[in-house]
C-alpha cells in the first residue's frame, strides 16, 4: 500500500466495463452464457477473459423441443445448484451486476 492515491482513484470510478464487474465482487450477479445457460451466483474472482469463480451458483439450462403434432416450440428449464464453480470466460455472453431491487 505504498501509493494509496493511485489505488483510491480506480476504486471509485467506472472507466471501463471490467470496473463494473470489479464493483460486483462479493455480490450476487447474473451471468448469461452461450448454449442457453444462465448462472446466478456470488462473484468471488474474475480475470480479463471473464473467467470467473462463483459461489452458491444456480444454473438454469433452457432447452427447446418442437411438439410433433402442433409444431409448437416448447421450452423446458432445468435448474441445479453448485456450491463453488469456475466458469471459463469464452462461454460468457453478459455479466449483470446485482439487482438492487431484490432484497
Amino acid at each position: 500500500m505504498a501509493d494509496d492515491q493511485d489505488q483510491a482513484i480506480p476504486v471509485q470510478t467506472v472507466e471501463e466495463p471490467l470496473d463494473l464487474v470489479r464493483l460486483s465482487l462479493d455480490e450476487r450477479i447474473y451471468v448469461k452464457m452461450r448454449t442457453d445457460r444462465e448462472l446466478r451466483g456470488r462473484l468471488h474472482a474474475y480475470d480479463q477473459h471473464l473467467n470467473m469463480i462463483l459461489g452458491d451458483v444456480e444454473e438454469t439450462v433452457t432447452t427447446s423441443e418442437i411438439d410433433e403434432e402442433t409444431y409448437e416450440e416448447i421450452f423446458k428449464t432445468t435448474k441445479r445448484t453448485i456450491p463453488m464453480l469456475f466458469v471459463r470466460g469464452d462461454g460468457v455472453i453478459l455479466v449483470s451486476p446485482p439487482m438492487r431491487t431484490a432484497t
Binding site: R22, L25, A45, G55, I82, P83, M84, L85
Partner: peptide, 26 residues
C-alpha cells in the same frame, strides 16, 4: 465449460483480494 471446485476449501476473501489486486495491476 465449468470446473466445480470444493467449496469448503476456497478462501473466498483471498480470491477477491487477488482479483482486486490484479484488476489494479492491469
Amino acid at each position: 465449460r465449468y470446473v466445480q471446485l470444493p467449496a469448503d476449501e476456497c478462501d473466498t476473501q483471498l480470491l477477491q483480494d487477488a482479483t482486486r489486486k490484479e484488476a489494479a495491476q492491469n
